[in-house]
């Protein structure tokens, strides 16, 4: 297994992309663990290029109006709502 170093700044960059704040302690611990995990992933380099021919087909249905959740049910789990809409954080 090759040495694959990940530094805490790199972890912080990924965390920003993923919209997850981390504590200093998590950042340090993840840096060490990611080095080990990504080193293991390096073994994928040995995989030959393989023609995959997945039997995927688009599944379509007619675009017809039908019963669905009513507005109050759809909003029920939101912390904050206003005028029948979801309310996000206030932008300062």
């Amino acid at each position: 297994m090759s040495d694959f170093a990940v530094d805490p700044e790199e972890v912080e960059h990924i965390a920003e992309l993923a919209r997850v704040e981390l504590s200093d302690e998590e950042r340090e611990r993840f840096a060490g663990q990611f080095g080990e995990i990504l080193s293991a992933f390096e073994a994928l380099d040995e995989v030959p290029e393989t023609d995959s021919d997945p039997d995927l087909t688009n599944v379509m249905r007619p675009d017809e109006v039908r019963e669905s959740l009513d507005q109050s049910e759809a909003l029920r789990n939101a912390d904050e709502t206003e005028d029948g809409q979801f309310k996000g954080p206030r932008v300062s």
Binding site: A15, E16, R19, V20, E21, G88, P89, R90, V91, S92
Partner: peptide
């Protein structure tokens, strides 16, 4: 949280 959306989501 309030403020920058990305920061409050994070």
């Amino acid at each position: 949280y309030d403020g920058n959306w990305n920061e409050s989501f994070a």
